[in-house]
Simulated scan of single mutants.
Amino acid sequence: MMRLSVIIPCYNEEENIFPFIEQIKKIEKQLKEHLLFEYIFVDDGSTDKTLERIQEIRQNNNNIFYLSFSRNFGKESAMLAGMKASKGDYITIMDADLQDPPELLLDMFDKIKEGYDIVGTRRINRKGEPLIRSLFSKMFYKIMNLISEIKMIDGLRDFSLMTRQVVDSILSLEEVNRFSKGIFSWVGYRSTYLSYENRDRVYGKSSWNFWSLLRYSFEGFINFSEALLNIAVWSGTLSFILSIIGIIFIVVRKLTIGGSVNGWASLVTIILLIGGIQLLCIGILGKYISKIFLETKKRPLYFIKEKALNNDR
């Protein structure tokens, strides 16, 4: 029988562990004739009793496993660790706060049986979110699709069901700076998306705030677009062109109606000329250096302090 690996990244989710298991177990019963479930919780350095709650439910369930990080490394690292630990024929990533509807797995599995390799999910609205966050989120997807070759659906979630082949392809990418939404799209394969109404967290408060989401969006821009570096290149080029125009204007004015304060105009144009050339050169060099710097460090993306996995892993 086919196996489904359910990866659950957790950071301070002690109140949500029991409700999540209660809901997902109902879906497991409905799919028990088709799939064997295994649950891989990834404790991302939680400071509450998240790990203790996971250990409690593991005592009564032989298909629940976990990894616990030495500190908080971020959701990207947690998802990566979960995918590496999984052995299922199909893999899904879900949040423990039940904002990802477990019952949607039934429709997602039907789509997989139709021949799709990735079944993603998207929120059709952002009910309950702060207005400023919703506006910036919509703006992110519009800008991302404008400046990047990778196209992403507005409202895209990490909650997805993937085949083993897709996950193996994702794991073959050894890049340090990971942006999973972009990676899932970049690897290709036959994909489809299911929409659902936004849901509030069952308990607790999200660890994602406006500034952390803003930083995360910049990771997407940097990893899948050169637009930020192109700003330096084009600003330098524009400054250089304006300085040339300024020089021509000053020369023409001097020859026709006379000049202004002696030395001022020439000094400003020289500064603009040199500054423009410098920005242009720095921008070009930055295109190469930025791609090399972070990847050459080869730092591990996480450290596992404690784990409980299947004996065959």
Score class of each variant (00 low, 15 high):
Lys291Arg: 11
Ser243Phe: 03
Gly82Tyr: 04
Ser195Pro: 10
Phe69Ser: 03
Thr50Arg: 08
Asn125Pro: 01
Gly276Cys: 10
Ser172Leu: 08
Leu161Met: 05
Ile248Trp: 05
Leu36Trp: 11
Arg253Gly: 15
Ser77Ala: 15
Thr121Gln: 02
Leu267Gly: 11
Ser195Arg: 02
Ile64His: 07
Asn262Phe: 15
Ile284Tyr: 07
Leu280Ser: 13
Lys49Ser: 15
Pro130Gln: 00
Ile27Pro: 08
Phe221Tyr: 07
Thr50Tyr: 04
Ser217Lys: 03
Ala78His: 04
Glu114Ala: 09
Gly286Trp: 00
Tyr116Pro: 10
Asp107Glu: 11
Leu280Thr: 14
Asn125Phe: 00
Leu294Asn: 10
Leu213Thr: 07
Lys205Leu: 07
Arg133Val: 10
Glu129Lys: 08
Asp117Gly: 11
Val251Trp: 13
Gln55Thr: 04
Val251Thr: 14
Arg215Gly: 12
Ile274Pro: 12
Arg299Tyr: 13
Val119Gln: 05
Asn209Leu: 02
Met152Phe: 00
Pro9Asn: 04
Ile241Leu: 14
Thr269Asp: 06
Gln30Asn: 11
Gly246Gln: 00
Ile143Val: 14
Val166Leu: 04
Asp158Ser: 13
Asp107Thr: 00
Gly259Ile: 14
Leu161Glu: 01
Arg53Thr: 07
Leu242Ser: 04
Lys138Arg: 15
Gln55Phe: 01
Leu279Gln: 07
Val252Asp: 07
Leu67His: 07
Glu28Val: 03
Ile292Asn: 13
Leu105Arg: 11
Ile21Pro: 10
Pro101Arg: 00
Asn125His: 08
Lys26Gln: 13
Val167Ala: 04
Lys287Ala: 00
Glu219Lys: 13
Arg215Tyr: 09
Asn223Leu: 12
Arg313Trp: 07
Lys75Met: 12
Leu173Ile: 15
Phe109Thr: 01
Glu15Met: 08
Phe224Gln: 06
Met83Cys: 13
Met79Ile: 13
Tyr189Gly: 07
Ile183Gly: 02
Ser180Thr: 11
Ser68Tyr: 05
Met139His: 09
Val176Trp: 14
Pro102Ala: 06
Lys254Gln: 13
Ser70Asp: 15
Glu22Asp: 12
Glu52Arg: 11
Ile93Glu: 02
Gly283Pro: 00
Ser160Thr: 11
Leu213Asn: 14
Val166Asp: 06
Ile27Tyr: 09
Glu306Trp: 03
Glu174Gln: 10
Leu131Asp: 13
Tyr66Val: 03
Ile244Glu: 01
Phe210Cys: 06
Val252Lys: 12
Leu213Trp: 06
Tyr39Val: 03
Val233Asn: 09
Phe140Leu: 08
Pro101Thr: 08
Pro102His: 02
Leu213Gly: 10
Ile124Tyr: 15
Leu213Phe: 08
